[in-house]
Design a protein around this nucleic acid. Structure first.
Lengths: 253, 253
DNA sequence: ATACACCTTTACGCAGCGTGAAGGTCAAAT
DNA sequence: ATTTGACCTTCACGCTGCGTAAAGGTGTAT
């Protein structure tokens, strides 16, 4: 069976340009040319083309393919192994790329839709650091290594949606707390609602909730300047009020 | 701070040719040129280059980068997401490539070190097909769809080492069977050993073993021409002998 | 004879620079 | 004042694996 360029091209599913190129670079020469210069391919060339296309499928360069199909089988196997190594490295790099692109997307989204996301990122880190510095030892001793690590991990892994929920919750706590102080009773309905919201809030950070830990945190709110200042912005004495409400809520008086 | 091409190139860790190219394609033009045509870059250009290099790290084309660094931030995020999709597709293709290269290596090695590997491949497929044709319905009815599918899947996924073990085991079964028939007693020690080996052999194909299924298979060995012929090659009447031994072994008389 | 499909060679284009070539400029050393 | 050597400039080709014309010759059916 003899084929002209286009016939062979159709048979093999490549373009005639490709066959001419393969002729040009010497990887697949026609069996002969007819009187008017037409390229004529025979069975041997068909087989060779099949081989070439097979290796091309594997992503091997035409130059390499030339070596492979002219070399004995064990050389071909070696070449393939080397090629595999290159592919594996490529995949490793690709994975790294994907990770980085994803990171970039995450940070870009943060920057565009809410520019305080970055602040939040920094804030989260700072919060953990501060937390570590001030209560690290104390907390770790009290609740164990694991709890602390989990809490930190959870904070860092919070999604944007979660963060938004947390921010909203914090606002709700403050306004409820404000209203509750109007009434003046830490055991009152509003104060207990505030304590309940606060419980919800800390479960965003803690992997496990316990009344003891909750009450302990409330104590810290009063004992620590930083936290006290935060709640006292709501209204002077808010930190103490919240502590009392939580103590009642948790029954840890 | 002002830089000439080479200074900036060193600072950024690229070649001066690269900077000239970036000027040429308009992605990074120098702040000005001095009286003799030297390119002079300023702080703004340094920053821009940093951005360009950052996105280049992510494998984005210079053309795309141009769009990204001139477009507002949300466009950048979209571009990045699209880029991520492309990368993920690339990885999928790469995985496919790697799989195929590995298959090719395996078969190339097979061809050079053991040419019956190919036969085995064909054999496995044929075995499943035959099995399906002859006992498909029957077996599926008896043991349920799942068992059959699992068996086929297991057979196709067998490694070469496993295959070798199976072949050895089959040989051992045959020779033990031969010796057992010498003695003549299906309940004898050697016959029971053969039955035990046969159990081992089928566990290579079956995901779960049951005495009932084992005894059922033994019945088939006698009932079916093909299997009967296989065992009768050991010695005439071997299929029946094995069936009896297995029936005793499984207590399913 | 004409149309139309097919063939040929030549050559630019693509991405992102590397690598010369040919020639001008700057600062320091002679 | 001149020479050296390190810079700078603008072309322009090369790399991969073809796609895509352009310009012109063939084969064959009508």
């Amino acid at each position: 069976m003899e084929y002209t360029v286009q016939k062979l091209a159709q048979l093999a599913g490549v373009s005639s340009r490709t066959l001419r190129y393969y002729d040009e670079i010497g990887i697949l020469k026609p069996a002969r040319t007819n009187s008017s210069g037409y390229r004529i391919y025979g069975q041997k060339e068909v087989d060779r083309l099949q081989q070439i296309l097979f290796y091309r499928e594997l992503g091997i360069s035409l130059d390499q393919i030339k070596d492979i199909i002219t070399a004995p089988a064990f050389d071909a196997a070696d070449a393939l192994k080397e090629h595999r190594e290159r592919l594996l490295e490529k995949r490793k790099q690709l994975d790294l790329l994907i990770t980085n692109v994803e990171k970039t997307i995450a940070s870009a989204e943060g920057r565009t839709t809410m520019s305080d996301k970055e602040k939040f990122e920094g804030f989260k880190k700072k919060m953990i650091e501060d937390n570590e510095k001030q209560y690290g030892k104390e907390i770790r001793e009290k609740y164990g290594e694991e709890t602390v690590e989990k809490s930190n991990a959870k904070l860092m892994n919070m999604t944007r949606e979660e963060h938004e929920a947390v921010v909203k919750l914090a606002e709700e706590i403050n306004s409820t707390l404000d209203q509750a102080m109007e009434k003046g009773d830490p055991a009152g309905e509003l104060a207990q609602k505030a304590a309940g919201l606060h419980k919800q809030w800390i479960t965003y950070y803690w992997s496990e909730y316990s009344k003891e830990a909750h009450a302990g945190l409330a104590e810290m709110y009063v004992a620590d300047e930083r936290f006290k200042a935060y709640y006292d912005k709501v209204r002077p004495g808010a930190a103490e009020f919240l502590r009392d409400a939580i103590k009642i809520y948790t029954g840890q008086q």
